[in-house]
Design a protein around this nucleic acid. Sequence first.
DNA 1: TCGCCATGGCGCGATAATCGCACCATTATG
DNA 2: CATAATGGTGCGATTATCGCGCCATGGCGA
Lengths: 276, 276
Amino acid sequence: MAETLHPAEVAKGAEGAVKDDADPNFMTSLARGLSVIRAFTEREPNLTIADIAKITGLPRAAARRCLLTLMQLGYAGSDGRTFFLKPKILALGYSFLSSAPLATILDPLIEQVSGAVQESCSAAVLDEDELVYIARAATKRIMSVGLNVGSRLPAYCTSMGRVLLAALPEAELDAYLARVVLKPFTERTIVAADPLRRELERVRERGFSLVDQELELGLRSIAVPIRAASGGVVAAVNVSAQAARVTCPEMEVQFLPRLLRAAEEARVLLVRSRGV
Amino acid sequence: MAETLHPAEVAKGAEGAVKDDADPNFMTSLARGLSVIRAFTEREPNLTIADIAKITGLPRAAARRCLLTLMQLGYAGSDGRTFFLKPKILALGYSFLSSAPLATILDPLIEQVSGAVQESCSAAVLDEDELVYIARAATKRIMSVGLNVGSRLPAYCTSMGRVLLAALPEAELDAYLARVVLKPFTERTIVAADPLRRELERVRERGFSLVDQELELGLRSIAVPIRAASGGVVAAVNVSAQAARVTCPEMEVQFLPRLLRAAEEARVLLVRSRGV
DNA sequence: TCGCCATGGCGCGATAATCGCACCATTATG
DNA sequence: CATAATGGTGCGATTATCGCGCCATGGCGA
């Protein structure tokens, strides 16, 4: 149980650049503690010290120290044998949400669209080559479980991801394409750089992205960009639905207008809330 | 700008118990790093090193090290002068959300109730004497801004808080009442222990809690407990509305039945998902 | 325009905080 | 019953972290 998973952002060095780390400004203990927090997942909400050690690659004693510290601070709890995260941990992630005007503003809009079209609706931004959900309204509990605020998906094969990629400066897109491996999630997934570039070009021209079962069979989604006052794309919103229930043309007809309206509304609201 | 706010869980010692016994299992650096994360709030999403130092009480150099570490790990960013949290920080809180069957299960139910009654609906649990939102569906952006997943409110003057307090074992309730100061948020807030006890007794008997403008004038809310298979109360769900629009009797008539139904549904779903 | 103060960056010596090995007790495992 | 794995602990080693102090920068007011 609990296999050695994510590469433990700590270990050698997340960035493969220089290996003679020894950066005097890098606090190893902090990095370790955070990696311990991230070791907890849906699959294994209750972990033992040994589990954590395996997952993070930390020595058992170190893992234990982190856990104990998190406990003392109220971020984790223990039933004696296993450890688990406590709700206080939300205070961390959500210092971001509450400090992000975006999430606050988009949330009600998302709800509104979702309620109107009776399908799941989300907002996301790009972070480290991935798509990160910052707001979400689900109609039913379905769809490849567990998409939540904070969830991360690849950008190249999702509608919101493509909208955001399409808005990237040329150079950054090049860098992205150079970095990322386009893994096929279904047989429809675009996995070659050139076709992807063309698709992004198309997204840019049409002002929205429609992705048909490229991430998961049976799942279609359509997304539009959210623009700030300045005109820059700051996020994306989408509606996703089961392919069996909604055809591609229907997605455009039924969902696109609402998405565009929400995006326009968001833009207006964003103007008023710019403390940045 | 950026006043000295929360007491910096690090400094002296969150628990007033023993003084500075230098627990060998406590990693100060980790605690400091986490307190830096929590220094970011809605009011000030962009903070300078000096700000952070003031807020957390850390020396400037230490604050700087934390910030730089968070940056290297991708949790924070900087525009050169000020720092801000990046979406990756959500991965921390998200470890909890995704590892909490509760949040996943309650979310769709919340949405459903919210959609049906056209008012904001939330779910919360108790954590360190406070109410913590674990799921939320807002209809409009209103109501004393920024209630989000992760938000914390006092338990004694909120409907969900009372539902959860009412479910506490006698001894724990005593301890709670001994610890907490009942601060009046409005002139209606119950601030004496005895009346509060009686109210909790009433909540226990009636199976729900209706709080009328005790947290904020113009705000009413009604909550019911969510019970696990075992019968223990594990969370609460509520509906809140503007007092001007919905009277107390109306709250009971219009919202209570739906809340009870959602709670019953949750109970059924919880039985099936108990991996704990 | 000229200083003044607050801030960010940096280096370093000091030291205490963290490390991780090694060992013991206890409990799953077979 | 034997074995392996886990949790807990202590300690010496060391190095990761600390925080003071200094310098450069720059915003701001006089």
